[in-house]
């Protein structure tokens, strides 16, 4: 299916190959075969980068036709979501919606209704933007990514995939095929909030994903806190989780959480926000996120 994009003259042929394999194995084989290969899932980042001439891949591997990567399946100890499932599809999955409202609300914040018809969590993770909305929520939920590569299959915690802006820990030829969300303990709630100057169609200035579990007397017995857009990649902040664990998640605990979140934030000044603003608002967002997660945990 190779097609010359433009054939300028005999010596200067630019070729971009487009392939749409139907199995994960075929996709891995293609990705391994070409140094300049890129994965196309929803395309909501890749096509923008192509149009802006930020990238010039020699091979684009479209994974949307791989049925296994577009399934949401219930397993004994959790739910598996294909890496190429679109936001709009996940939003219609009643059980996922009931179990992981925080992950879903994070995913659904990406772009617009039209973008939601295409965007995938696999793409959001592997694009490796520090501000990716679904990533802190997945990390807080304790999700793992299943990776298929030339060397076989492996499972990796989501927080270990992105290592810096635009960079992942994936080896050559490797592909994230699905995410596994372990069945949460009773009385668990998750939430995600981000700050943007507008109300939608924007990129997180800071983002917080929090998942917490209460015991029978409403004391927090487990928590995970992940912060987005305040470092080179989404952070897992144990100090922030520790501020909640063993407490009834009261004002004092929330204040400590906010303080820990602000302390963990190591943002830069850029066009999306100043450093001092991000540090302060990171604490605010962490506290508000915890309040939502708490309410959900109490209701579960």
């Amino acid at each position: 299916m190779a097609s010359d994009r433009v054939n300028w003259n005999g010596s200067d042929v630019i070729t971009m190959r487009y392939e749409a394999p139907e199995t994960m194995e075929a996709a891995v084989e293609l990705l391994s075969s070409d140094e300049g290969a890129r994965v196309l899932a929803g395309g909501t980042d890749l096509l923008v980068q192509l149009r802006a001439e930020m990238i010039e891949p020699s091979l684009v591997v479209d994974v949307k036709r791989i049925a296994a990567m577009r399934e949401i399946t219930k397993e004994n100890d959790g739910i598996r979501v294909g890496a190429a499932v679109a936001g709009a599809e996940l939003g219609e999955h009643e059980e996922f919606k009931a179990t992981w409202p925080g992950v879903l609300e994070a995913f659904e914040l990406i772009g617009s209704t039209q973008i939601q018809g295409r965007a995938t969590m696999g793409g959001n993770l592997c694009n490796a933007s520090p501000a990716a909305d679904s990533v802190p929520a997945m990390i807080a939920a304790g999700a793992t990514a299943t990776i298929l590569g030339p060397g076989g299959q492996r499972d990796v915690p989501v927080e270990d995939i992105a290592i810096g802006p635009g960079q992942t820990s994936l080896d050559k030829g490797e592909l994230v095929t699905s995410f596994f969300f372990p069945k949460p303990a009773a009385r668990t709630g998750d939430a995600y909030l981000r700050f943007i100057p507008r109300t939608e169609m924007d990129i997180a200035v800071v983002g917080a994903g929090i998942c917490l579990t209460l015991d029978d007397s409403d004391i927090c017995k487990a928590a995970r806190v992940s912060l987005g857009a305040v470092a080179a990649r989404a952070l897992v902040v144990d100090e922030a989780a520790d501020a909640l664990i063993g407490t009834p998640v009261d004002e004092a605990a929330l204040a400590k959480l906010a303080e820990a979140a602000s302390a963990a934030a190591k943002p830069i000044d850029d066009k999306r926000g100043t450093k001092e603003f991000r540090i302060q608002v990171m604490g605010v967002m962490a506290r508000r996120t915890a309040e939502i997660a708490l309410a959900r945990a109490k209701a579960n």
Binding site: R198, T199, E200, I203, K271
Partner: peptide
């Protein structure tokens, strides 16, 4: 210019 596009040149969207 660092923000030559509607993503980072923030005009209001309908929900604002």
């Amino acid at each position: 210019l660092e923000n030559p596009g509607f993503l980072d040149y923030r005009m209001p969207v309908a929900s604002d």
